[in-house]
């Protein structure tokens, strides 16, 4: 899990990295059996915690983007391992290919049979290539549609984990109808007569994200982002200079907190001190709690009511005319 990954420090984490380095050094000293430096370690740890708290409570949007993309952040499969028992992966779109960028299958969430769908970015070179860095092709979205239909047929709630830079841009993907696949996927989300709960766990990249996130409840991890375009992409189009990514990130309102205020998402899931990449298990447990609450809240609604709730929610977004 997260611990085994290289602990990459982000540039704004420099003071924290220095303090943690000191602690590490002291720990090595104490191994030599010299004087006890427990107190000193404790004192430094308190400083680290304070620093983390301060840094992470006021991250800029661009910093959030960096945290959301942190390689040590738990990914879709980590959530599946932590929250879903009897996970039985299902494969293929029944038309062209199996797309590993989107994983999906049957399993149990706290005893309840569910269908799980999500983008997986991978955690090392090999798995990143296998999962195409979490960027799905049309067949990935068609697999998602197939699994959502399966859920609908058997009355199983759908849980989706969103973590993608976006749908894969490529010639083949266009030829096979990337846009159609995403469009249809959104349509299927909205048709479902079962509850669908979506969690943005890292990057919610544009159409590639909404394809599996037109949900009854959309939740975001505290330091995840969700946007119509990447800050870099936005900067290169509107500023004509990718270097303005920071400005673009500020302008796009892509943080969980901004999106909650805009009514685009329903809930922000708190992350552990220093974000999910410092304590994956705590982040996964918090996500589990949020999923449980969301499913419980939707429990009384029948198929028609679930569809209506979804419709009403999305129709209201950004609308002031009351259409």
């Amino acid at each position: 899990m997260a611990e085994t990954r290289v602990h990459a420090f982000l540039d704004f984490e420099k003071p924290i990295a220095e303090l943690e380095g000191k602690i590490e050094e002291l720990r090595h000293l104490s191994d030599d059996g010299e004087i006890s430096i427990v107190d000193e370690v404790e004192r430094l740890q308190t400083r680290v915690d304070r620093q983390l708290d301060q840094t992470y409570s006021k991250l800029s949007p661009w910093q959030k983007v960096q945290v959301a993309r942190h390689p040590g952040r738990p990914h879709c499969l980590d959530y599946v391992r932590g929250l879903i028992t009897e996970f039985t992966p299902l494969a293929g779109d029944r038309g062209y290919a199996e797309d590993n960028a989107i994983i999906g299958g049957l399993g149990r969430f706290e005893g309840q049979s569910v269908v799980v769908i999500g983008q997986e970015k991978g955690h090392d070179t090999e798995s990143r290539v296998k999962h195409n860095f979490g960027m799905a092709r049309p067949e990935g979205y068609r697999k998602a549609q197939r699994l959502m239909h399966l859920a609908d047929r058997f009355g199983l709630p759908v849980i989706t984990f969103v973590d993608t830079a976006g749908a894969y841009p490529g010639i083949g993907a266009e030829e096979r109808g990337q846009a159609q696949a995403i469009a249809r996927s959104i349509e299927v989300c909205l048709e479902l007569t079962v509850p669908i709960v979506s969690l943005v766990i890292g990057e919610g990249g544009s159409g590639g994200a909404i394809a599996i996130a037109a949900a009854n409840r959309v939740l975001m991890l505290e330091h995840s982002v969700y946007s119509v375009i990447s800050p870099e992409g936005c900067a290169s189009i509107l500023w004509r200079d990718g270097g303005h990514a920071t400005d673009a990130a500020n302008a796009l309102k892509l943080t969980a907190q901004d999106l909650l205020a805009l009514g685009v998402i329903d809930e922000v899931i708190p992350e552990p001190l220093g974000a999910a990449h410092r304590d994956g298990e705590a982040a996964i447990a918090a996500a589990g709690q949020a999923i449980r609450n969301s499913l419980a809240g939707l429990k009384g609604l029948d198929g028609a009511a679930l569809r209506q709730q979804r419709r009403d929610k999305f129709l209201k977004m950004g609308d002031t005319t009351g259409l």
Partner: peptide, 20 residues
């Protein structure tokens, strides 16, 4: 159980299905 779990399940069960 799930309702009861909301209180008790603060420890993060690695690998296992937390509350269940």
């Amino acid at each position: 159980k799930a309702d009861a779990g909301e209180v008790s399940d603060t420890d993060s069960g690695t690998g296992t299905d937390g509350v269940g």
